[in-house]
Design a protein around this nucleic acid. Structure first.
Length: 634
RNA sequence: GCCAGUUUAGCUCAGUGGUAGAGCAACGGUUUUGUAAACCGUCGGUCGUCGGUUCAAAUCCGACAACUGGCUCCA
């Protein structure tokens, strides 16, 4: 037992019997049993000494199991209501489950309610889940006879000799590894079908599209309600909504995937850009700027034209005689700067940075607010170095990057190592060394990470840094990519100690990735309540009566003189209204002045969301706000 | 790009074949006001675009576009 206790039985017993021997309550709550770390059905017979743990809905494994059970019940409900539908796969996911179905007629939104109602019937009926083991041929024949060709295909693809387990609940049979709860009643009513989507069979866009139904499932109805409430709260911090409410930016039909930055949003953009600049300069980067419109020959030489030409914007010029591409990345341009003049090993490492505006014709379905756009600005840089310098350069970059994330208030970052893809340039030897270098750098920096096999770029492996948005989606922001190919293709070289020409290694790296995306994430992270250094308007001077107008103007002027971003609200309105409006606009500080303050040279300082105010001398306020507005350091 | 859905005033949303609505915002006036909504009044829409059906279309049909949620993709 997990608590260290031991129980003896005369002979083999089922998990259910073990649970019952401990107590009636546990027997009722039990969903599955862990035998020597393996999750099993309660009906599984234990015929030897083992470490066991009874799993209930209180444990994460228990919830996951219930979500998987719910997927089965959904498949059963769909087969009952729409018998011509084929079932395919239906796993549990983070907050629930889904099931992919194949049918000619797509589901309608109304069908979800019907399916959900049928699921509730099945749960109420409390049908037992029964595990059976079938011979492979019998299983294939069974599903083929039912017209379940996808299921038959899955079984055919299982390795020979694998036990084929089938779970039965009522009339419904499904191929499944298990385990499952003893019966459908255990699922309870804390579930809800949420959305309808298309999904390719086996995740491959060359395959037919299936109908995916998503659901969410929880241990109780209360937890379900809590989750739905959280979703609503998350929606309130959606960057598209806050972007409009705070007048930061807008998007419109004539320029899909491109941002119209309003003055306040652009202020934030520049602050963020300058913040990165302030970090890059001490780290030994040299900022450059390269052309937007470049002849196709350069992109053909780099390999991008072949690999991504379909997603590049192209422009005919010289009356159609020539074709240029709008740059989709900055690397070929940086190589051109490197190639100017002869470089010595003494010049390396060379670090060229650029706030490069790039355009990519992203698929229409991929666009999302300002997070996934067609025109974006990368905080890009390319490090040209010798192979010996790779690990230390990577490590230095990782530390620089983590420092930036920390300063911006992010601590939950997923680190991934994307390894060689099928379609790639360069020899296996180069890839072995490249992947090895990135691993060493990650280890030296003490980061834990997960491998992503096959996900690397065509020219090299990469480290990806992913951040989470308000509703749990993750976005790739920072990246570090090893490139042993481009210097060769674009003929970049340096003179080594031996007097011979050598190829440098190129490291592509970006900390924020896309400034547009990163601002989107920051908006959601802070829900629009930005720290003072980032807030587009740091304070509003609000007057109580027109007697204080001149004083208010004086305050605004004094603040602007020390670099604070301050507006004055002299409208003929009640202070209540002004407080309300600037609070809704999420201005961090309000400086309220009436006749009293004007006469004494004081200011009533009020913080966003605060209940009370503080009467402070004008010079004091300016001093304090200046200090608080400092860009995060170290 | 694929599947599903959405598109009506600046915003949020009603409006199921018969002259387009509400709240908030905006604008004008009155109010000089002490920390999250003063009062009165006014303006505002070729109902995403184009085409079709009909005596008549926001409403029915078709195409296209943009957006949303997924899938695929993301140099």
């Amino acid at each position: 037992m997990p608590d260290g206790a031991t129980r003896m039985f005369d002979g083999p017993v089922t998990g259910a019997a073990v649970a019952a021997s401990i107590g009636a309550g546990l027997a009722k709550a039990a969903l599955a049993i862990k035998i020597d770390g393996q999750l099993r059905d309660l009906s599984r017979v234990i015929d030897r000494d083992a470490r066991i743990a009874i799993i209930t809905r209180e444990q994460p494994e228990g919830i996951e199991l219930l979500r998987h059970d719910a997927a089965h019940v959904m498949a059963q409900a769909v087969k009952t209501l729409f018998p011509e539908t084929q079932v395919t796969i239906g796993p549990s996911i983070d907050t629930g489950f889904y099931y992919d179905f194949a049918r000619d007629q797509p589901f309608a939104l109304d069908d979800l309610a019907k399916i959900e109602e049928k699921m509730r019937e099945i749960v109420r009926a409390d049908q037992p889940f029964v595990r059976e083991e079938w011979p492979r041929d019998q299983a294939i024949a069974h599903f083929e006879n039912l017209g379940e060709h996808y299921k038959a295909e899955i079984i055919r693809d299982l390795p020979e000799g694998e036990i084929i387990s089938i779970y039965r609940q009522g009339e419904f049979l499904d191929l499944c590894l298990g385990p499952h709860a003893p019966s459908t009643g255990k699922i309870g009513m804390g579930f809800k079908l949420t959305k309808l989507a298309g999904a390719y069979w086996r995740g491959d866009s060359r395959n037919p599209m299936l109908q995916r139904v998503y659901g969410t499932a929880w241990a109780s109805e209360k937890e379900l309600a809590h989750y739905l409430f959280q979703l609503e709260e998350a929606e309130k911090r959606d960057h598209r909504r806050i972007g409009r409410e705070l007048d930061l930016f807008h998007l419109q039909e004539e320029a899909p995937g491109q941002v119209f930055w309003h003055p306040k949003g652009w202020t934030m953009f520049r602050i963020l850009e300058n913040f990165i600049r302030s970090r890059l300069e001490p780290a030994g980067y040299d900022e450059v700027k390269t052309p937007q419109l470049v002849d196709q020959s350069l992109f053909k030489a780099s390999g991008h034209w072949d690999m991504y030409g379909a997603n590049m914007f192209k422009v005919e010029h010289d009356e159609g005689a020539r074709v240029a591409g709008i740059k989709p990345m900055n690397c070929p341009g940086h190589v051109q700067i490197f190639r100017q003049g002869l470089k010595s090993y003494r010049d390396l490492p060379l670090r060229y940075s650029e706030f490069g505006a790039c355009h990519r014709n992203e698929p229409s379905g991929a666009l999302h607010g300002i997070m996934r756009v067609r025109a974006f600005t990368q905080d890009d840089a390319h490090i040209f170095c010798t192979e010996d310098q790779v690990v230390s350069e990577c490590e230095a970059y990782i530390r620089l990057q983590l420092g930036v994330y920390e300063a911006l208030g992010f601590d939950k970052i997923d680190v991934k190592l994307a390894l060689r893809p099928e379609e790639r340039y360069g020899t296996d030897a180069i890839w072995d060394r490249a992947e090895g270098s990135l691993r060493s750098a990650l280890e030296r920096a003490g980061l834990s990470y997960t491998d992503l096999p096959g996900e690397g770029a065509f020219y090299g492996p990469k480290i990806e840094f992913h951040l989470h948005d308000a509703i749990g989606r993750t976005w790739q922001c920072g990246t570090l990519q090893f490139d042993g190919v481009l210097p060769e293709r674009l003929d970049a070289s340096y003179i080594g100690e031996d007097g011979q020409r050598h190829r440098p290694v190129m490291l592509h790296r970006a900390i924020l990735g896309s400034l547009e995306r990163f601002l989107g994430i920051l908006i959601e992270q802070y829900a629009g309540k930005f720290p003072l250094w980032l807030a587009p308007v740091q304070a509003v001077v609000a007057t109580i009566t027109s007697d204080a107008d001149d004083y208010a103007r004086e305050i605004q002027k004094a603040c602007i003189a020390v670099g604070l971003r301050v507006e004055a609200d002299l409208r003929n309105e009640k202070i209540n209204l002004k407080v309300r409006e600037h609070s809704l606009a999420k201005v961090p500080v309000m400086l309220v002045v009436g006749k009293r303050e004007a006469e004494t040279g004081m200011v009533a300082l009020r913080r966003l969301g605060g209940k009370d105010q503080e009467i402070v001398a004008l010079n004091d306020v300016i001093h304090r706000l200046s200090i608080e507005s400092a860009v995060p350091s170290a």
